[in-house]
Design a protein around this nucleic acid. Structure first.
Lengths: 138, 138
DNA sequence: ATAATCCTTATAGTTAACTCTAGGTCAAGT
DNA sequence: ACTTGACCTAGAGTTAACTATAAGGATTAT
């Protein structure tokens, strides 16, 4: 069976070897086998697992929680319910993240427009409402 | 003109007073005025500015870059081009973030389905392909 | 055979963004 | 007058996630 070195995997996943070893130290890669001398041998399935880890990271899941998931995977079928719930929770989180980004996008686009207008006018004053504020009599 | 204390602003924006003072220390709030004794007095316009800062933070913009924007604002019309370009860049970044989250969502949804099926079957083995791998003759 | 280039561990350092503590000031209520 | 609670600064501490260094072992290329 074809295996890959840590350097090859790092290149493939756009990570550094430092990062991969850090993940291993944090318990995210208990499945990776070693040569008798200690060198890690990554299988295709290990790379797939790392892709899932990267996916969970993209949902802003902390590494400690990802570790729980990895531990559950090692536990086998008894943790199926937990793993299912975890992914459902992740789904809700990503939905919320997308929604927040869409709201952010609206503000950003408004600002793009605001500055386009100001730039064309040469001054931001173009946006200053001259709403004739009542000046206090004095 | 109505003003607000740091505590009121913190509550309004769902931040802590520590965070607001930290932002001030980092130069994000040069516009906030003080009483003679040093207490910060936030105006409505200051709160609006903080909402923009929160919006930029939501695009994963580092505080140092947000500071540059605040500095440009103080510079007036001469920085209009830079501010316009900054928001256009932010727009591109948010688009990319949304796209990445949508790809992430596809994977997560697939996993939700995967675990739903496994849970119904009572075992993850339901997904194991029995693709008759050619066993080596020995 | 030997140099280059991998790999290993253990451990220390970095960075961003808070988060808190200590020690003090100030304004309002009893 | 005095206590309470919110404000202030300076500076220290925390956390997550890397990122790098040192010292050495293993593998590959000439």
């Amino acid at each position: 069976m074809k295996t890959y070195s840590i350097g090859e995997v790092a290149k493939e996943l756009n990570l550094t070897v430092y990062t991969l070893r850090y993940y291993d130290k944090e318990g995210l890669m208990p499945f990776v086998e070693r040569t008798p001398s200690g060198t890690r041998l990554f299988k295709e399935s290990d790379i797939s697992a790392l892709r899932i880890i990267e996916c969970l990271k993209a949902t802003a899941m902390p590494i400690k929680e990802i570790k729980s998931f990895i531990d559950w995977c090692s536990d086998g079928d008894s943790s199926l319910q937990q793993r299912y719930e975890m992914f459902m929770e992740r789904k809700a989180i990503v939905e919320a993240q997308i929604e927040e980004l869409q709201k952010t996008m609206e503000v950003i686009e408004h600002k793009c427009f605001y500055y386009k207008v100001a730039l064309d006018a040469g001054t931001e004053d173009i946006h200053k409402k001259d709403k004739n504020e009542i000046s206090l009599p004095n």
